[in-house]
């Protein structure tokens, strides 16, 4: 059983920087404080930058899951 309940998911594999972060930010905006967003992203630039930018906005990064297909799921709790 997961230690968190995902409220919403967003796929940012179809966009490139800086829209990757913008898309995640917009999705977080839709959530209430404490709710959890799963951000599906590619390896490389997104995984390097998006978690850091999200932390800078004050949100809590709970987990970064490395999927078998090389993509990542970033689990973020909205602050």
């Amino acid at each position: 059983m997961a230690e968190y309940r995902i409220t919403d998911t967003v796929d940012i594999t179809d966009v490139v920087c800086p829209v990757t972060f913008v898309k995640a930010k917009v999705a977080l905006e839709e959530l209430e404080e404490g709710e959890i967003l799963s951000v599906h992203m590619n390896d490389g630039e997104p995984v390097q930058n998006v978690p850091r930018s999200i932390k800078e906005e004050g949100h809590r990064v709970l987990k970064l899951i490395h999927n078998e297909d090389g993509t990542f799921d970033l689990i973020v709790q909205k602050a």
């Binding site: 966009v15 972060f21 913008v22 898309k23 930010k25 917009v26």
Partner: peptide, 10 residues
Amino acid sequence: QLERYSRHII
């Protein structure tokens, strides 16, 4: 739209 307005949205 996210791309066009990204500098605003940030």
